[in-house]
């Protein structure tokens, strides 16, 4: 089953206190940012700091690094310093073409070889932040086997689209739909953009509900206080948990009996339904919702 990425939390790369504590909040992924969160004068400092944090601190979650775009004067240096520390994932911002992904992929491949890491062990995700990128979403998503997720970078995209944030979120409709479909077609995850009004819990909750319904796997967050809310919305109901348990039980029983057709209460169970049940239980377990399970 794919790794859970309900919450992907950005952490500014030049802030030692935040880097040290980034792992304690329960985010599924933490993304150390050396891009927008770091001024051009501190890029050199931030990448050293991030590399050292990854080397020395045991994080209980996936660790990604948002590098500067490969076409900027910083992207290649970011990778040169950070890859030897072996992050779990590189997040490329402002991805527009499959070539962007292939460029980074090539550098990662070389670094893996040089550092003696397992080939393909460093994953990638890309954020699409322009209309051109949206049009190329499937190519970007399927450009490399390293690719695990597509995300939307919200503000830049809206500027490119010549619109701005609303409370109802229609401005993102085209991009979100395109991204989630492209990601699914490529067999990877779709991650929604950040919600920056951290004190508006209701608005945040509504947005997560909406993107969950659209098919997204998770959301980018900018503050630890947002993590619990995301996980709450992604949490299965007790009814869903019960159903998932029954599905898996029926599936296992059928496997044990070697029977080809699996059904529960007269309904067929196939691969996607089993996968969905597994996902529901993974979310439930992550929240300690199934007391006494396992």
């Amino acid at each position: 089953m794919a790794r859970m990425r309900r919450s992907m939390m950005f952490v500014p790369g030049n802030n030692p206190g935040m880097l040290i504590n980034a792992g304690i909040y329960g985010a599924d992924t933490i993304i150390f940012c050396v891009e927008d969160a770091v001024s051009v004068y501190e890029k050199d400092a931030a990448r050293q700091l991030v590399a050292n944090a990854i080397r020395n601190i045991k994080y209980p979650c996936e660790v990604a690094v948002r590098i500067n775009h490969i076409s900027t004067p910083y992207g290649r240096d970011d990778l040169a310093v950070i890859l030897p520390a072996k992050p779990d994932m590189i997040r490329l911002p402002k991805a527009e073409t499959a070539a962007d992904i292939l460029d980074v992929d090539e550098i990662i491949t070389a670094a893996e070889k040089k550092c003696g890491f397992e080939a393909g062990s460093i994953k990638m995700m890309a954020a699409i932040e322009t209309c051109k990128g949206i049009m190329n979403a499937y190519e970007i998503a399927s450009a490399s086997p390293r690719m695990e997720a597509l995300a939307i970078g919200g503000e830049d995209y809206l500027a490119d689209l010549r619109t701005s944030r609303t409370t109802h979120g229609d401005e993102f409709l085209a991009a979100r739909s395109q991204i989630v479909v492209a990601a699914r077609a490529a067999g990877i995850q779709a991650i929604d953009t950040v919600y920056s009004d951290i004190n508006n819990e209701e608005g945040f909750r509504n947005e997560i509900t909406r993107i969950k319904e659209l098919g997204f796997d998770g959301k980018s967050v900018i503050n630890p206080r947002q993590i619990k809310i995301v996980h709450d919305v992604f949490a299965p109901t007790q009814k869903e948990i019960d159903h998932a348990e029954r599905v898996l039980k029926a599936y296992e029983e059928a496997l044990a009996k070697g029977s080809g057709v699996i059904s529960l209460n007269g309904k067929m169970i196939d691969g996607p339904i089993v996968a969905r049940a597994e996902r529901a239980l993974a979310y439930a377990d992550a929240l300690g919702m199934r007391k006494g399970a396992k």
């Binding site: 304690i24 909040y25 630890p224 206080r225």
Partner: peptide
């Protein structure tokens, strides 16, 4: 407190 570590 709004300090996320204290809240944790």
């Amino acid at each position: 407190s709004k300090d996320p570590r204290e809240l944790k």
